[in-house]
Amino acid sequence: MEQLINDFSPGLFFMQILIFVLILFLLIKFAWRPILESLKIREESIQDALNSAEKAKEEMATLQADNKKLLDEARKERDQILNDARGIANSIKEEAKEDATKQAEKMIEDAKKAINTEKQAALTEVKTKVAELSLQITEKVLRKELKDSKAQKALIEDFIKDVNLS
């Protein structure tokens, strides 16, 4: 320790302070400040570039996700539409079938009704005709029977015989 204190040179100490302060001043002014500024600017620009790249990547990812979503939706919609169409077609088909059946039934029914009516009409006509014919026959028969007065008188007599005036 004593040796050290003896070795300590105040003059050198003073010169060292002087030179060190000078170097410190010169370096801060002409070296450290511009160097650190440039480094900071460069690092910030690199960071910015990285950030924007990251952002672009994220955007790309969201875009892709969006696309996928859209595609999925479209596919779903298509399926939906197809399903709906199929349903509608089916229902139309069913309806058509039903209609056809109904109509057929109705037609059959109508036909049956018509047949019945016709039958009735025909029957009635036949009946009327038969009646007419019978009348005509009766008339003819009667005319033939009652052609001479003798026969007429016989008939009347017959009637009178039957008529019991009692």
Partner: peptide, 29 residues
């Protein structure tokens, strides 16, 4: 003793080297 001793000369040389080296680095930006 404020002499320019060998050590002081060394400091001056070191200072000149530093100012020159890092000054040129600063300028190169």
């Amino acid at each position: 003793d404020f002499s320019i001793t060998k050590s002081v000369l060394g400091m001056l040389i070191a200072g000149i080297l530093l100012v020159w080296g890092f000054g040129s680095l600063a300028k190169s930006y």
